[in-house]
Design a protein around this nucleic acid. Structure first.
Lengths: 236, 236
DNA sequence: CGCTGGTTTGACATATGTCAACAGCCGTGG
DNA sequence: CCACGGCTGTTGACATATGTCAAACCAGCG
């Protein structure tokens, strides 16, 4: 079934409110393209709900798409050596863009795997190129996305890989909490927690079990949790 | 003493060969500015040798300059909490650009401190803005720099903060070696090594002393070292 | 010469890793 | 329906890498 309008410009599409953070959206306003040209360029943008665990792209492969998160959460996974071991180098949340390397014709640096059921826009590199040749504003937007990605990567190093494992886990939970307005944070796999804060799966499990006993976190439905930000901050 | 020509365009300036990696340099070729305009824009670029330990800018301050390394090495230092503790989140070597946040009008994320006597170009934000309004090529160059910065930050996380301290130190030495064509690497302060690989100063010292005893590294003049890449690789 | 700041080293504490067992959950297939 | 296997999480016992604290050492330098 072919849509007759692009998602981004279709007023009848129910999801439009989540577009406000999108790089494309905020540059379309400044576009010098005609309405028809715009429709055409944007029609190739695909929007979809993706289940947790799905892989959007793989480390070291080339791809023709850049992605934005409309809701949910995506992990950027870097495999090390023979693949027996991996680190999560960033998370991307609502409003974020990832896979920017594709715009440079470079292979993806990491695998992108959905952490929490996510609403994802998949934007062809060609679409971005069409828009940006006509529109300086898009370059600025892109640069802002690159900087945001860099900020997130550096936060991972500074906040989640420094200090004792307990503080690191506390900071991780606070970070997840800050990105969820409804204060429901995903109950991550212990293996993922381990790959984020740089410990073994067992240590991650012990810490989480301990946090639960100390009532720093409590379970909610649907593999989600709620945390006590005040208490967590005191652990940092 | 005022120069009568900009460094970048002065054929008599002895340092010109190191310009080949510069973002400005590689876009000047595509510039639509007149030669006079170009001279004017580039004249504000300052070039200087900077001693180890000098601070080019400070974390959380705003500045009007972006920098490039013509030779030597600069560390990006992030202070944590009250400043009693810090991490080094990236290193920048010959050809790199840093302080890009300034182009967005944002405060510098980290302090930039010279690690090894360095030849630095200091480029005013206004110069970049003058050039880029007339020149799409510069945007592409800037984006490449942002990606390079991101790559370096992620390598720090994946290579230098994963695995045992011994492997991390080995990877650090190999990285330093890879950035020095003459295979002379700086003999870093133990405190800096510690802030890079995420251990205490004592552990960094013990490891380095051990590496020296095992002949994995040996001292050279001028606080420099030589390392045995083959042996180091076997430790990874 | 005696500071000073960086380095090395020792003795000991402890956080985290390792290996292994077991428990709970869930989907599958008999 | 139950039995089973596979996956994830929890926990224990123990090993070990790294942190902590303190002392000694060393080179450069006023």
């Amino acid at each position: 079934m072919r849509k007759n309008k692009a998602y981004c410009t279709d007023e009848n599409w129910s999801g439009r409110t989540d577009c406000k953070h999108c790089a494309i959206r905020s540059t379309v306003l400044f576009s010098v393209l005609s309405e028809a040209e715009l429709e055409d360029a944007l029609r190739e943008i695909d929007n979809q709900w993706v289940e947790a665990g799905s892989e959007l792209f793989f480390q070291d492969t080339k791809g023709q798409y850049v992605y934005t998160v409309r809701s949910g959460c995506v992990k950027m996974v870097h495999e090390i050596g023979d693949g027996s071991c991996y680190r999560i180098v960033r998370l991307h949340y609502r409003g974020d863009t990832f896979g920017l390397e594709a715009l440079l014709g470079e292979p993806y640096r990491h695998s992108a795997i959905v952490l929490q059921k996510a609403d994802i826009c998949r934007i062809p590199v060609s679409t971005v190129q069409t828009l940006r040749t006509r529109n300086l504003q898009l370059y600025k937007q892109l640069i802002l996305r690159w900087q945001a990605t860099l900020d997130e990567a550096e936060h991972f190093l500074v906040d989640l890989n420094t200090g004792h494992a307990e503080s690191r886990l506390a900071r991780l939970l606070l970070k997840l909490d800050a990105h969820n307005e409804r204060h429901l944070i995903p109950d991550l796999l212990r293996e993922d927690i381990a790959a984020i804060i740089g410990v073994t799966t067992e240590t991650a499990s012990r810490l989480m079990a301990d946090f639960r006993r100390r009532k720093l976190v409590c379970d909610e439905t649907n593999r989600q949790m709620r945390c006590d930000p005040g208490a967590l901050k005191s652990l940092i």
